[in-house]
Amino acid sequence: MLILFQQLLNALALGGAYSLVALGLTLVYGVMKIPNFAHGSLYMVGAYVTWALLTDFGVPYFLALGLAAVALGLLAMLLERLVFYPLRGSPGVSPMIAAIGVLFFLEACVQLIWGPDFKLLNSPVTGIITFAGLSLTGQRLLMIVASVLVMLALFYFLKRTTTGATIEAMAQNREGARLVGIPVGRVASLTFFISGALAAVAAALYAPTSLVSPSMGEIMNLKVFAIIVLGGMGSVPGAIVGAFLLAFAEIFGGVFVGANFADVVGFAVLVIVLAIRPQGLFGRTA
């Protein structure tokens, strides 16, 4: 029983990190209708930037986290301008394929700069909190708290500010948004900025509990796509529910099926859900 509660806390931490990455992806899809296959690589670059800031420049952890968020936000904006904006009129598969090119390019660049080996990101928050027999590392606690805070901030931004409302409006109806005079181009840039920044924050939070490697982006990519497909492409609440669902499936799947197949469990969930509900859990039909 205790083990289950322990795993529950782990799943919450993992789900928090997944949500942040998935939220960026789902926002970009909602606003631009682009499945950004390069999103996972933004996450990966975010982890490396954080690592470099911490080890090479000795920047304090929270500052590094903020700087990485800004840097990746700008990188994502640049991608939008250079690749996705020019492709906005072309057939559906073109932006997907271009994004795949970006994914491999960023991964190769990181390998070229930092090498293909695993890097260890030391957790800045040390200590273990023990309560009623349950133990939680400081970093996991930070992951849970920080991801909840970031999500609340994002919700506040989307629901309570004018700029956020325009993003929502565009996600609902792109043509309509153009007609009522929303600057579609600027909103697209902003959305990409947010998606890059969220990915970097997730990376800075999650990387200390695992390892940093060039291939971490690909794996995360597949997972967050599974998440937003599960939750319904473009749906914000769907991304969060999907993220926690995947985290729970992986952690508990790992317990019951064996850790070896933990990664497969997530995709099995995806395949099963889609087989029953092709539009995802929260997706709208047609």
Partner: peptide, 13 residues
Amino acid sequence: YVVLGPLLVLLVL
């Protein structure tokens, strides 16, 4: 892919 990645993007563009 430092070479092939951008090549893929340029082709699509």
